[in-house]
Design a protein around this nucleic acid. Structure first.
Lengths: 142, 142
DNA sequence: TTTGCTGCAAATGCTTTGCATGTAG
DNA sequence: CTACATGCAAAGCATTTGCAGCAAA
């Protein structure tokens, strides 16, 4: 029951929030833009919910640590449920598919490099772009 | 003489283009947003040049490979002269200072990871965020 | 002259906000 | 009942575009 998550985050349990959480959990893709979420809401018959609410809710979820936001190439930010485990992304430039990965070597080097350059590392963003070799790959959306 | 660069890129040699190139070469910072460039143009007395032209010119320079564009956190894209040598960035979250670096280990791992995941790597974006330890650091712009 | 460039203002696309109404707690 | 949420429309940014006038080549 995801109402727990909402209450724990200090957010009132409302229909828009529940529905959006649900879509992020069982939606078509793990990485979705606000528009993607909004579109699915419409498809599911939740036509009273406005796009502004989707943005507001996603932003609140981000602040609450329920969701994380990524700025891949192409203007639109994408959101994904945050399971607490850090990871980076590789995005297919053709079909938009996103695959997550973690690499201890890279993580370690980043830390060292920051120290060498006199920085106290707080965060980082690593996105690889390439063409995936999936069967039906050649331009959808994700 | 930078007119060469322009001609080689198939661009007419015009005052806006020369001035913008000049600012990128001798400007206050190596990484500048379009607004930054525009602001310096105004300061230098080049007040006839419009912001739209700055954007257009920077985009053309990017297409010509003279300049590269980066999307760091904070909405505004930043541009830097492209010397052909690839590098990544570490950005100070306090003063906005940017330091460039290259790390062979990271580059190699990225390649391997892409292959392992069945991607043909085309490009990547790595940005580290942290606090730098420079003397006067605590919130400017760069 | 011809093709490409520029300034300006208007248009975009994504995201955020103001405000009056609604509703969870 | 009160504080917080929502929908809608309008506002905000960064960036792009249409167009008429200008200027390199």
């Amino acid at each position: 029951m995801e109402s727990k998550d909402l209450r724990r985050a200090g957010l009132k349990v409302t229909l828009p929030r529940l529905k959006i959480l649900e879509i992020l959990e069982r939606g078509a893709h793990r990485h979705m833009s606000a528009e993607d979420v909004y579109r699915e809401l419409m498809e599911v018959g939740e036509e009273k919910i406005g796009l502004a609410t989707v943005y507001r809710v996603l932003t609140q979820f981000e602040a609450a640590g329920l969701v994380s936001r990524h700025n891949f190439d192409g203007g639109q930010a994408v959101f994904e449920l945050d399971d607490g485990k850090h990871h980076d992304h590789i995005v297919c430039t053709e079909c938009g598919d996103v695959v997550e990965f973690v690499d201890a070597t890279i993580e370690k080097r980043q830390k060292s490099i920051s120290e060498e350059l006199g920085f106290d590392l707080q965060d980082h963003s690593l996105v690889l772009y390439g063409r995936c070799n999936k069967p039906g790959c050649s331009g959808r959306s994700e």
